Amino acid sequence: MQELSFVKNYKENFSLRTSFNRLAASTFGIQFETWYQHGFWTEKYQPYSYVDNGQVIANVSVNLLTLVINNEEKQAVQIGTVMTHPDYRNQGLARKLMDKVLADFSQVDFIYLFANQTVLDFYPKFGFAPVEEVQFSMDYCHIPAEQLGVRKLDGSKPDDLTFVHTLAAERISGSKHFGTKGSEELLMFYCLMVFNQDLYYLEEEKCLVICQRENTVLHLYDVISEEKVVLKDILRKIADNSITKIILHYHPDDNEVKLDKQPYQSKLFVKNMTGVKLPKEFKHPFTSQA
């Protein structure tokens, strides 16, 4: 085996991008080409990779975004797409790539990631500590409301994607307590690849709602708007009388509804670079998770 080459931020290199996508597909069952072709792979997403004979064989990706914590903005890096081809494992490649990322982004407030079950002992070696989140939910009793002004969008249609991206780029953080800003590219990945048939625009509230139904449970993944909206009003329009429970996959700000909280083991690992105090209880928004 010849000496490996280190490359980063190579999205415009067709050959390397194709190899990267191939490794991501074989490792996670996902691919990034559609995201790239729609223009949502920007400089905020930077792969750090080792290449052997023109093929990407190990990677650690950087996602640049802003965390909103108690109404203050903090600069953060979220690590994602950590993968190594099976033929190159147990050679310390992921460790070397992590070292490069940590060296390049030593000035941010937070570096964090969501680990998978098989590598929970890997990230503490770099100073990451596990952090427990909370899951918000509520019992729901439907109050009838007119369903007028609810428009279903299609994440496979360019016009609808452009509409969503424009709204997302100007959105306020979903929560002043704990939320994200500047993460619209991550959101668009979900709109393209995960929730493309779960997008609803509420004309009166001027907000986009991402939600899925599971029997009598409604999973609310995000509410995207340029101004504050009232959760109670949204639920009256998107939840019918068969829904008995709402699960929120982000940290809500709305105090007009009673919410239950339960510990949520998301395998979140955080490296606090500047000593910023995290809230005692919070939920990272699902649609900003790399």
Rank of each mutant, 00 (worst) to 15 (best):
A129Q: 14
A103D: 15
M83I: 03
Y190P: 00
A58V: 08
D222P: 00
Q2I: 09
V270A: 04
E73S: 12
Y250W: 06
T287A: 10
P285M: 08
P263M: 12
R171V: 01
T166E: 14
R213P: 00
M188E: 12
I57E: 03
T287C: 14
G174V: 08
D99Y: 06
Q78A: 04
G127F: 11
T274E: 04
Y250L: 05
D154V: 02
L67Y: 14
V270Y: 06
G127V: 13
V56M: 02
D104I: 11
Q197T: 10
D222C: 04
V194T: 15
K11P: 00
K152V: 04
L259S: 04
N53E: 15
F32N: 03
N71P: 00
L93V: 04
K152L: 05
V164K: 00
F136G: 09
T84G: 01
Y112I: 11
D254T: 04
D159H: 02
L278G: 00
G174E: 15
H177L: 12
L187I: 11
R213V: 10
Q212H: 07
V108Y: 12
Y123A: 10
D233G: 12
R17Q: 14
Y264A: 05
N21G: 07
D222V: 03
I210C: 10
E43I: 04
S5E: 15
A25R: 11
D121F: 11
T216R: 12
C207I: 07
L102W: 10
K8W: 10
E214P: 01
T216H: 13
P47F: 12
D198H: 15
D240E: 07
V194E: 14
G149V: 07
N272K: 03
V209A: 09
E205A: 13
F178H: 05
S19R: 05
Y45F: 11
A169E: 15
L67E: 06
N53V: 05
S49C: 13
T244D: 06
S173Y: 09
T81R: 01
I172Q: 11
V229D: 11
K8F: 10
F110E: 10
T216G: 00
H219G: 01
S26D: 08
W41M: 09
H251N: 13
K283M: 13
E204M: 08
L64P: 00
F6V: 07
T81V: 06
K267E: 02
V51D: 08
R22L: 11
H165Q: 07
N9E: 13
Q135W: 04
